[in-house]
Design a binder for these strands. Structure first.
Lengths: 208, 208
DNA sequence: ATAAAAAGTGAATAATACTTCATTTTTTTC
DNA sequence: GAAAAAAATGAAGTATTATTCACTTTTTAT
């Protein structure tokens, strides 16, 4: 299993090294998202980060390693955001949790409008990361669903299929309403309406 | 609205021009899928197509136009495949149609294992195509759902949300079972099991 | 058969960008 | 505060590749 830290030329031990690494990452994130991996030059990154080209190679062995580093970090970020958001509410009812989870996911995408883009890029910049990302997400989903089934809150089913269904739904809704549309126009009420729609179908199905 | 034909340097009027164009497209499709847009050089394409570099520029003004051409053609292909497959069955019941539609979509992805890949690439190679593709697909979905609502086969709902939910599901299942897994190991029975799982949830929901 | 039009060719051009490394600057240590 | 270690620098090397264009070959039309 690939770890973000293994992609660095050496682990940041000093304060300065930490600061510069952070500058580089923020810049890379920014530009990888705005343009894309292949249209982003190292010159672009170091210019935005306000360091020299040599410095870049002081931290990462090559361009692809830096990209992977950023993607892995971002994945951690989303998961943390949702996990924290969920635990804060104290909800245990699975249906309410699902609702809140979808809401939190869309929220995150709204606050970081291009985050899906950067993760989706990995689909063909570094496919193994893409697979690992959704595998991971999916497995966690499955686990939670399994315990919900155990206490009779969710119908027994092939939970792998169910988790990919749910991930697909959330992802496409995020793409539609955050990326396609003008996400500044997406009010909180509208977001709740969308989530409610989804929940209604997950509750009683779509066919009469 | 961008049309595939407008991307050609001139419309193929002679037989020879049609043949060479087809050779180029097949080669490009092949390689764009195996590698990706940015890792594919024009030299790669013309070598596979067994023509010269000059010939390439005889047909397309540049690399991006050729890519767009291939994506647009592929989009037409999928839609035709599903529409034809559906009309052949003669089904009118919306639930059965949905089932068959999802099955056909996964079938298409199985037969063209990297087709999602090439369309998803457009997400950041040519975002306007990506948006148009799903917009189009989604609108058609909506229309069909609307008539199903009219005859009382589907619950009234925000059909835009519903169609993106359905597209997201299908896409992610295709990715999971066609791309991630070893798609040669995916039997027809397993495919039907997956579709049945989906339908069960769309029928009665997932929450007890 | 011949002239004109269409199609094909590939060497040369031009531009971009990844990466290296010898040197300089800054920070830390004693 | 001097020596050593860490970090930063950016010009130069190397490589790739999209695109052009003057020329050749093939096809079509008369």
């Amino acid at each position: 299993m690939i770890k973000a830290e293994d992609l660095l030329k050496s682990p940041p031990k000093t304060k300065l090294r930490e600061v510069t690494l952070e500058k580089l990452c923020l810049a890379a994130e920014q530009i990888f998202m705005k343009k894309n991996y292949y249209n982003t030059s190292i010159y672009d990154i170091v210019t935005e980060a306000d360091v020299s080209i040599g410095t870049f190679y002081n931290y990462f062995p090559d361009k692809i390693s830096m990209y992977k580093y950023v993607v892995l970090k971002h994945g951690q970020d989303i998961r943390k955001f949702i996990a924290k958001g969920l635990s804060k509410t104290g909800i245990t009812d699975r249906k309410k949790m699902e609702r809140e989870g979808i809401k939190l996911y869309l929220d995150y995408c709204l606050k970081n409008p291009r985050v899906i883009n950067i993760i989706w890029q990995s689909h063909f910049v570094a496919p193994e990361l893409f697979i690992a990302y959704y595998d991971n997400f999916g497995k966690q989903y499955e686990k939670q669903l399994a315990s919900a089934v155990a206490v009779g809150e969710v119908y027994p089913a092939d939970l792998e299929v169910v988790s990919y269904m749910l991930m697909g739904m959330s992802n496409f809704l995020a793409i539609k309403y955050v990326e396609f549309g003008d996400h500044n126009n997406l009010t909180d009420e509208r977001l709740y309406e969308i989530v409610d729609q989804v929940m209604e179908i997950l509750q009683r199905g779509m066919f009469v």
